[in-house]
């Protein structure tokens, strides 16, 4: 780009336009990919064995990091609520206060960010490496559809993994929160658990968080497959693709979090 040729004051507009075009290209590419993925479901042309393989690789192997994240997150939520609880000496409400934010927002959000970093980035790196080493062309030459064989199983596994991990993280975060409440504020875990079964929280709050996790899963799945497939430029290109994937996933997660929060109310 001959940037010197453009007058200085219009460079800002040029940059903004370029950035906008880039975002639009990415969003469009992800939309087309989603369409192509969905087309493989009618009629189903998906490799079932690959789904199981990926579920193991993505799901089981992410358990430790999700567990650590969830335990600490629950603990942090209680520490944050602690000041307020002390101020109003409302120990009975601690479970509800920490549980509400955890179930509806923080657990799905942080789990999604961690899965985006662990699973999404791995997926992009793997697909990107396959693209730059022509393994995708090798599949096509064997008359095997790369979308049905590679992309759909990964996409399905990412969505399923994030859903299950969020469920798991919900439980562990509340566990961590209950025990931090005991250590820090001397609130008995029973009181804590009563706090969120007393009627202020219901299944709707859990479902709210889980719905979000599905939306986030779709975002991560699409972003990681899109950037993996769009990799160019050899090995450094794979690094760039991974970087672009985590950034796009994070931005997408936050924007859609907002949208789903409002829609679900």
């Amino acid at each position: 780009m001959p940037e010197d040729a453009i007058p200085r004051h219009t460079q800002v507009f040029a940059a903004a336009g370029t950035a906008f075009l880039r975002v639009a290209t990415t969003a469009g590419g992800m939309g087309i990919l989603l369409f192509r993925i969905l087309a493989r479901f009618f009629p189903p042309r998906i490799d079932g064995g690959e789904i199981w393989k990926n579920l193991y690789k993505m799901g089981v192997k992410s358990l430790p990091i999700v567990a650590i994240t969830a335990l600490f997150t629950g603990a942090i939520m209680v520490v944050q609520a602690a000041t307020i609880v002390k101020r109003y000496s409302a120990e009975g409400l601690l479970g509800w206060g920490a549980g509400f934010g955890t179930l509806r927002e923080i657990a799905p959000l942080l789990t999604a960010l961690m899965i985006s970093g662990r699973v999404g980035a791995n997926n992009t790196a793997e697909l990107g490496t396959m693209v730059v080493t022509e393994q995708l062309d090798a599949l096509r030459v064997l008359a095997i559809d790369p979308i049905g064989f590679l992309i759909v199983p990964r996409f399905v596994s990412i969505v399923a993994t994030l859903f299950m991990m969020t469920l798991f993280a919900d439980a562990l975060a509340l566990f961590g929160a209950a025990h931090t409440g005991k250590a820090l504020l001397n609130v008995d875990p029973v009181t804590f658990y009563n706090g969120f079964t007393a009627g202020l929280l219901d299944f709707g709050d859990v479902a709210n968080g889980l719905t979000k996790s599905v939306v986030f899963g779709v975002v991560i799945g699409l972003a990681s497959c899109h950037f993996g497939l769009a990799t160019t430029g050899g090995a450094p290109g794979v690094g760039r693709a991974v970087n672009a994937q985590v950034v796009a996933s994070a931005a997408g997660i936050f924007v859609l979090d907002y949208v789903t929060s409002f829609i679900l109310g």
Binding site: I76, A125, P236, V238
Partner: peptide
């Protein structure tokens, strides 16, 4: 692990940095 290693290193960096932040957050908050 050669060129593929860069992709894995990036992945590890994101995950480990995020975990470090969450753990630091817990200790500083407490």
């Amino acid at each position: 692990g050669g060129s593929e290693g860069v992709g894995w290193a990036t992945t590890r960096a994101v995950v480990n940095t995020s975990l470090t932040i969450i753990i630091l957050n817990f200790f500083i908050s407490t």
